[in-house]
């Protein structure tokens, strides 16, 4: 079964499956222990190293399973974990498991432009005002009409001494927003990179002077970014291209890493994101097989009742018109061949003397004949006329 087409072959909206977009991705940590080596951590010894790769690895045989920061002696002191996802994803959740007592302040950010700019998704703190200058999140979600980064309670410590940071994109968005119909929500869930900022460890006091009394280190594992490869409803899977980049396996006449534009020649109507009820496939221009290129014209699209806006370019086989649907001047439509046939248009072939011009009727092929001349190409004298010696009046009445 093709998720992007129904049983009859008609396009329908489709989305890739929910995956952990962080799995196997490189994590950039601003601090990692083991350089220089200490008693507890040695970056050059695989048995005692705690690299950031442990945050997104599938797990396995290595003894240490947790990333660990350098020993830090000041708070607040931000340690950041950044995960480039490789392409745009539509987030569902983000989670991070702490291997020791979870921090009391954590910020979660996202980028939509591969790390050039960052916006917050949420904050998690017992001191929202102190660390982030925000009020604690209202119990019923954002006060405004759109999603916003709220300050939620700090990650809860668990009986095993660790803790879990868990964030759902729904946490920051008002109830009732639908992804298909809300561009604001679509923007909110889109991310190319995720960044976790560990701001304040748990064991330190919450004093404003924030001097640390003892060295500490952050430690975490299982950084998960649950989401769907963003394909705008036009692909059911993402694949790696020849350069190893993740791209959507675009359908519906679309192309691009996120299927965010129409393929060349598929511009009979403007690109749109697919929804659950309408595929909004990009349509090929109707050029009757006589052109390889076309362009979109918004005015024509509006005039057609938002039906068709493609204009064929460089019609071949002596055709002309917006859809290469009629014959160019000097040619006429040959009814013996289909409009899509390369022989659909035949040269008028008007007689250089008998015809009054070179352009024939586009439907019948009849050339304009001089007086007394007849025939489709005006190459014979009509009954009652005979050929003269004058090329201006080639046929004269028979005496």
């Amino acid at each position: 079964a093709d998720p992007c087409h129904d049983e009859g072959g008609a396009p329908r909206g489709c989305v890739p499956g929910l995956v952990n977009a962080a799995l196997g991705r490189e994590v950039l940590a601003s601090s990692t222990c083991g350089r220089p080596a200490t008693r507890a951590c040695d970056a050059s010894d695989p048995r005692r190293a705690h690299p950031a790769a442990l945050l997104t690895s599938a797990g396995g045989t290595a003894s240490p399973v947790c990333w660990r920061s350098d020993s830090l002696t000041q708070a607040p002191l931000n340690v950041t974990l950044t995960v480039p996802l490789g392409k745009a994803f539509e987030l569902v959740f983000v989670s991070l498991r702490f291997c020791s007592t979870p921090p009391t302040s954590v910020a979660l950010l996202k980028s939509q432009d591969h790390g050039r700019s960052w916006v917050p998704l949420g904050f998690f703190s017992s001191r929202c005002g102190l660390d982030y200058g925000r009020l604690p999140a209202p119990t019923n979600g954002p006060a405004g009409p759109g999603p916003e980064a709220l300050c939620f309670p700090e990650p809860q410590a668990q009986p095993d001494g660790g803790g879990l940071l868990a964030f759902s994109v729904q946490d920051g968005s008002p109830p009732g927003l639908d992804l298909d119909s809300s561009p604001v929500l679509q923007d909110w869930v889109t991310a190319t990179d995720i960044r976790v900022v560990l701001t304040r460890p748990a064991m330190l006091g919450y004093t404003r002077d924030s001097a640390a009394m003892a060295p500490y280190a952050y430690s975490a594992t299982e950084l998960q970014v649950g989401g769907r490869c963003k394909c705008n409803g036009h692909a059911s899977q993402c694949l790696q291209d020849t350069q190893g980049h993740l791209i959507c396996d675009c359908r519906h006449g679309t192309e691009g890493a996120d299927c965010s534009r129409c393929k060349p020649f598929y511009c009979d109507r403007p690109w749109q994101r697919a929804t659950a009820w309408e595929a909004h496939a990009c349509l090929a221009c109707d050029c009757n097989g006589h052109a390889r290129r076309c362009r979109f014209n918004m005015e024509l699209y509006r005039l057609s009742g938002r039906h068709s806006g493609g204009v064929c370019l460089n019609c071949r086989h002596n055709t002309a018109g917006r859809h290469c649907h009629y014959c160019r001047e000097g040619f006429y439509r040959d009814p013996g061949h289909a409009l899509s046939d390369r022989r659909a248009c035949r040269a008028c072939d008007c007689h250089p003397v008998g015809a009054a011009g070179k352009t024939c009727n586009q439907t019948t092929g009849q050339c304009p004949c001089k007086d007394g001349v007849t025939g489709l190409t005006c190459n014979r004298c009509a009954p009652g006329f005979q050929q003269s010696r004058s090329p201006v009046a080639p046929c004269v009445k028979t005496p």
């Binding site: 250089p352 003397v353 025939g375 004298c381 009954p383 050929q387 010696r389 004058s390 090329p391 201006v392």
Partner: peptide, 23 residues
């Protein structure tokens, strides 16, 4: 009655040299 096709050789182009089609 089907008349014969126009015979280009019968035309006198003396006064209409500029109208004479290229052959």
């Amino acid at each position: 009655e089907v008349m014969p096709t126009l015979d280009m050789a019968l035309f006198d182009w003396t006064d209409y040299e500029d109208l004479k089609p290229e052959v």
